[in-house]
C-alpha cells in the first residue's frame, strides 16, 4: 500500500520521467494520430519528421516502424565542444550552462490560486520545448541528458553516425561532471543554500542521498551542540552539575 521508498526519485523513476521528453521520429510506415491520455499525437506519414514522446518513439523503434533522429547536442561535434567547456580551467567550478529557457508564461499567481492551477503552471523538464528533438540547441546539455542519451544509444544505436565515439564522449562528460560535483561538496553546510545550476536529473538522483545526509547531519549535530551549550550555561548559573554524567552517556550512544 504505502510506498516503501524514501523521499527522492529513484534512478528508474528519473528514467520514467525522461521518457516523457519529445524526440524527433522519422516514420517508416503510416500511423494515424492517436488520442492519448496525455493529449493527441500527430499522424505519422513517411518520411516526414514527427515529434513524439520518447517512450512511444522507443516502442516504434523496437518494432522497426520508425527511426529516431538524435537531438542536436547528441553528436560527436557538439559533445566535444561541451566537453571542452567542462574541462576548461577557467570554468572549473561550474557546469556547462543549461539550454536557454523560454520567457515565463505567467506572472506571479494569485494568493488564492489552488496548488497546481493550470494558469500558474510554468513548464519545466521533461516538458520543455525542444530539449531532445532534432531542433534542440546544440551547445547545451538539457536536464535529462544522461538518461536520454543512454536510452537512445541502447535502443537506437543505428540511428547515430558514430555511436562508439558518442558513447566515449558521454562517459568522459559524466566523469568530469561527477568530479566537479564532488569538489563542490566542500561548501555544503547545515543551512544548505547550495546553487547547483546545470545539474542533470540522474546526477541529482545520484548525489541526493549524500548531499541530504551531510546537510541534515550537520544541522542536527549543530542543534544538539547548541542545546548542550545552553544546558551547560544554565547549569553553571544554577550551580547544578548532577545531570552531566547522564548526558555524556547519552551522547556516546548516539
Amino acid at each position: 500500500m504505502a510506498l516503501p521508498l524514501p523521499p527522492g526519485l529513484t534512478p528508474a523513476e528519473v528514467g520514467f520521467l525522461c521518457e516523457m521528453e519529445l524526440v524527433t521520429v522519422i516514420p517508416r510506415q503510416r500511423l494515424e494520430g492517436l488520442e492519448l491520455l496525455g493529449g493527441p499525437t500527430q499522424p505519422m506519414i513517411p518520411p516526414f519528421a514527427t515529434p513524439l514522446p520518447l517512450w512511444l518513439a522507443l516502442l516504434l523503434k523496437k518494432q522497426r516502424r520508425a527511426n529516431i533522429s538524435p537531438p542536436g547536442w547528441l553528436n560527436v561535434e557538439a559533445l566535444t565542444h561541451i566537453l571542452d567547456f567542462e574541462t576548461d580551467e577557467r570554468t572549473a567550478d561550474v557546469f556547462s550552462p543549461s539550454p536557454r529557457l523560454p520567457q515565463p508564461t505567467s506572472t506571479a499567481p494569485l494568493e488564492e490560486d489552488p496548488y497546481l492551477a493550470h494558469d500558474a503552471l510554468e513548464l519545466s523538464p521533461p516538458f520543455l520545448k525542444d530539449a531532445a528533438t532534432a531542433q534542440a540547441q546544440d551547445d547545451a546539455l538539457p536536464y535529462h541528458w544522461l538518461e536520454l542519451s543512454h536510452l537512445l544509444l541502447t535502443h537506437a544505436a543505428d540511428d547515430f553516425d558514430d555511436p562508439d565515439a558518442v558513447h566515449r564522449l558521454l562517459r568522459d562528460l559524466r566523469e568530469v561532471r561527477m568530479s566537479k560535483l564532488r569538489k563542490g561538496f566542500r561548501v555544503l553546510d547545515a543551512g544548505a543554500g547550495v546553487k547547483m545550476n546545470g545539474m542533470g536529473g540522474m546526477e541529482v538522483a545520484e548525489v541526493r542521498g549524500f548531499v541530504g545526509g551531510v546537510v541534515d547531519g550537520l544541522r542536527i549535530n549543530r542543534s544538539r551542540e547548541e542545546a548542550r551549550k545552553e544546558e551547560e550555561a544554565e547549569q553553571r548559573e544554577n550551580g547544578l552539575g548532577s545531570s552531566n554524567y547522564r548526558d555524556d552517556e547519552d551522547d556516546d550512544m548516539l
Binding site: 520521467l17 516523457m20 491520455l37 496525455g38 493529449g39 497546481l116 493550470h118 503552471l121 513548464l123 516538458f127
Partner: peptide, 15 residues
Amino acid sequence: PHQTLDLQALTRAWV
C-alpha cells in the same frame, strides 16, 4: 490541449 496540461500538472504533483 487540456489533457497535456493535466499530464504536466500530474507529473509535477508526483515529483
